[in-house]
Amino acid sequence: MPDHPIIEIKKLSKTYKGTNEPAVKSISLDIYPQEIFGLLGPNGAGKTTTISILCGLFPPTEGNVSIDGLDIRSNLDQIKQLIGVVPQDIALYPTLTARENLTFYGNMYGLRGKELRNQISDFLYVFGLEKFANRLIGKYSGGMKRRVNLIAGLLHHPKIIFLDEPTVGIDVQSRILILNYLKEINKSGTTIIYTSHYMEEAEHLCTRVAIMDQGKIISIGKPSDLLATNPEFKNLENVFIHLTGKDLRD
């Protein structure tokens, strides 16, 4: 593991206006370059809030966050150039084609011209969508939309990628394709922060995971280490249930 973390979170808290209970309670966490870091937890655990703060969507109420050595409060514009975000929702315009969507998002990252066109063509080829480049997103299948949704966050080759449930609701083939691609770009130096409810997927993909519940990190480590410290459980899902309980969450 490299010496210097690419993401440093120190005593991060977030309380939304109009609420008394913090969504995130003084969490501290270091994520190192080239990690695939899994942020796991039941609904309402504080994962999305944490990722939203890291992406610059909300300011933290307390604590500090630095990304690649840049403080999130004072260097947000620079940080936004370094990161790519793949939201859980299909954040694409259904009445635009895949190419039009990707051109628009590429432009927003500062890409344009031939470079962008080539980039889009390459990605569409890799994800098996080159034949459908000019088809409206609204006419794509769920798996195809999910793949374009991923490409939109990768177009500018970010140093860090935030993935919020990137494989939810898609077919096995699309899932394998996406996960393999993520492993590939991770090998070439990209840091991935990933949230999922699929524990088996997280166990195989992530180099480290943090399990969150009620705004706190309750366990952190390599999946193998978490299993080793809880030998009575066969897999990460059982450890997760053991740590977070069986109660239903809002």
Binding site: G56, Q81, V85, I90, Y93, Y105
Partner: peptide
Amino acid sequence: EEGSLFRLLTMPV
């Protein structure tokens, strides 16, 4: 609602 704004707000624009 569709999430496009979420994505756009994470971009340098």
